[in-house]
Design a protein around this nucleic acid. Structure first.
Lengths: 191, 191
DNA sequence: CGATTCAGATACCGACCGGTCTATCAGTGC
DNA sequence: GCACTGATAGACCGGTCGGTATCTGAATCG
């Protein structure tokens, strides 16, 4: 398939992830993808349109691969809640790890209600919902509550692994998650 | 006092926080502060130098005010560990909340070992150490471990409040922190 | 008073920005 | 063979970028 739009999108995703959004010009993106300038403005309205499309693409792939990695790592529903952090640990070890591209986008695009920020919020909402589905499968008493707490741990691990250059951010988050999960299930017994 | 450098630094901090770093040009910074261009390059070597100085300034003020707010909110050492998240909640409610300027800086400056990234890492290391000092005062069995877990919760709350536009990120982080703190002290009893 | 220092203002630099326009070319269907 | 389509190549636009140089005024200090 590899249409022109796909090729541009694919390269743009990689470059945005490596160098940020505002810091790279469209000329670089086009040259790297071997695409004519007019093709950009034909398939995407503007540079922001390209950014938005690249984020959506990343989001889609992330949902697929993240869920697959978690589910491949543990089969028991409750173990999967913790396996999430093992998947993160592997991610953080990668040499090209540069944090979460959605958190980075939120940092670079200040306008609160912009399409890009909405795409970021949707991605982050999906993450919480996915954790909620794992919590539900594990039989947690209050899946949405547990999911919100685990989501904070996930994004905190990402942020600290990136910005604070902490090598064990995923480990700390996992240990915290163990306590949180245990407390969530203990509440059931107490009730 | 209000020297030229101070004035520029003060305005630059505000603008960087509101609009990001790469997206604003030096001309805007100078105009907003009413400072001549040459003064920038006299007191700071470059735009990056100004960014670095602005971050350091923010870091210094943050350390003072954050600790003061936490300690004003709770007097019992262990309660202070949770009061941290109440302080965050107040911060997130502010209309001008635009996330953590250090996390944002990490997103915009990709070069891993650059002075700016080092300043970011130092800020994040301080946060963990401050939580460690609170944990120590509270008599936690393993203050550094607890601190690392709480630090993940703090940055996770910030990231999700900003990027995911979650209104209760601080609340979720606080509930998680309660479980984490309880588990940390329970380990003492078990040992 | 005169010399020096500091900062304001502004012109200027080359480079690059996002975006538009035109011209060319390869492939496709009639 | 011919028109049409989609893509490439690249000149071009006004504006802005970070950074430098020059000139002026105002304060400082011996």
């Amino acid at each position: 398939m590899a249409t022109v739009a796909d090729r541009l999108l694919s390269h743009a995703s990689t470059i945005f992830e490596a160098k940020g959004f505002n810091a790279v010009g469209i000329d670089l993106l086009l040259a790297e993808a071997g695409v004519a300038k007019m093709s950009l403005y034909k398939h995407f309205k503007s540079k922001d349109g390209l950014v938005l499309a690249a984020l959506r693409r990343r989001d889609q792939r992330f949902r697929e691969t993240f869920a697959a990695l978690v589910e491949a790592r543990a089969s028991e529903p409750r173990a999967r809640l913790l396996a999430v952090f093992d998947v993160l640990a592997r991610w953080f070890e990668r040499e090209d790890f540069r944090g979460c591209i959605f958190l980075n986008a939120a940092a670079e695009f200040p306008e609160a209600g912009s399409p890009i920020r909405l795409a970021v919020a949707e991605h982050k909402a999906w993450l919480r919902e996915y954790l909620g589905s794992l919590a539900r499968e594990a039989g947690a008493p209050a899946p949405p509550t547990l999911a919100a707490e685990l989501a904070v741990l996930v994004d905190g691990a990402i942020a600290r692994a990136h910005a604070a250059v902490e090598t064990d951010a995923a480990g700390a988050a996992r240990r915290a998650a163990e306590a949180v999960v245990r407390a969530a299930f203990a509440a059931e017994i107490a009730a």
